[in-house]
Design a protein around this nucleic acid. Structure first.
Lengths: 212, 212
DNA sequence: ACAATACTTGACCATATAGTCAAAAAATAT
DNA sequence: ATATTTTTTGACTATATGGTCAAGTATTGT
């Protein structure tokens, strides 16, 4: 009939605990940085004794690695939304949308990533030199093709990508500052919509595309 | 005749040491974060024994505060480059230029600031709620006036400011990533010029201004 | 029922580090 | 010259924390 309930429970328990720990870790790393995060606090947030955290993740660094890899995976997944089949207007527009949505739904991931790069990418350097470089050069080529086809303005693709990354991630990484400047209130749904629209409008117009 | 050489030497020694410590601290805080930075390493970088660092700065937190305040001052100084007398094209263009120059000349300051905000601005919160909020609302009003005058496109001033901040600071905060994507070589003078031009072009066109 | 395996957890330890201190050296004032 | 103040510095301490461990408990396989 259905899957073995015992085996299911076993696996479930394991992965449930791991998930709780990883989520707690992401939050704590985001708020305190790698060095400032204590395994004790991660354990508290996850609702487990500290020794249990070390049972699932040998060292704090291993736990941190897992958190960073998770984020990278989510981002690369989102990166596939940059579908070059669609032409520049749709491709950029959708990519910005997804990045903005991620900034809102996954701010801590973005913050951990930002801190990692800030400190020289001690963990993730391989990924920068590998998949990220690959992805960037590939999309860069497509952008250059669009430019050659006269579908958008002449612009260095690298700087366009940096602008999309920085602007969208800013809403996560500097969310606290934005919130403060917003009268110490988180952006409302409407404000998020407005933010997305502003970002898309400026960038698309900025490279010679019509935003609608 | 000239100033008392003894008094001069005395003051000079003090401020020289303090300056060396502050510079070392900025670097170390940028690279390791507040918690990851050790007073020992700061002392080593400054070329002084640790106890001497504590002689000039009572606690690590006080030293960190001083570093963050320094950065804030430099940024507010730069912010005055956003001279609203000039009209939107010149004002925005010059402001972006200055911010890009600061990203290059003072990357560690930018990184410390970024980490501070990332972690919820435990030290600088007052400044966000005070001078920064004031400055932002003031410039926002000017931008709205420009829009009302038909001098630029309709756009939410806040999001325009966020875009300028995020894009320019990205070249400092994510400098390591940019360097990696640039074949692990720092941007050359020409590349920095190109970066500035790209950023200005996209943003100015993006809000309906001609970049030249 | 029994064995074996997986998980839980309080207590513990080794280490790193912020901060102290007292004694000496240097600079300055009288 | 002498007193006074400022600066320097090695040695020390208290504490926080990553990680271990062994004894227990629960779960699963036979």
């Amino acid at each position: 009939m259905s899957a073995d309930p015992i085996a299911f429970r076993k696996i479930s328990k394991r992965s449930q605990n791991q998930k709780a720990i990883l989520e707690a870790a992401e939050k704590v790393f985001a708020e305190a940085g790698f060095a400032g995060a204590t395994t004790q606090l991660i354990a508290d947030v996850a609702g487990l004794p500290k020794a249990n955290v070390h049972y699932y993740f040998k060292t704090k660094e291993e736990l941190y690695r897992r958190v960073v890899y998770n984020i990278f995976d989510i981002w690369m997944e989102a990166a596939s939304a940059f579908d070059t089949e669609l032409g520049p207007r749709e491709a950029l527009s959708r990519y910005i949308d997804i990045k903005m949505d991620l900034a809102r739904s996954h701010p801590n991931g973005s913050r951990v990533w930002a801190a990692e790069i800030l400190h020289g990418a001690p963990i993730i350097q391989d990924y920068l030199e590998g998949p990220l470089l690959e992805w960037s050069t590939d999309r860069g080529k497509h952008i250059e093709r669009w430019i050659a086809n006269g579908e958008m303005d002449q612009i260095d693709p690298a700087h366009l990508l940096y602008m999309i990354w920085s602007t969208t991630q800013h809403y996560a990484d500097f969310g606290h500052q934005i919130e403060t400047l917003n009268g110490s209130k988180p952006l409302s749904d409407e404000q998020w919509q407005a933010a997305k629209l502003s970002v898309k409008t400026i960038i698309l117009r900025g490279v010679g595309l019509s935003p609608d």
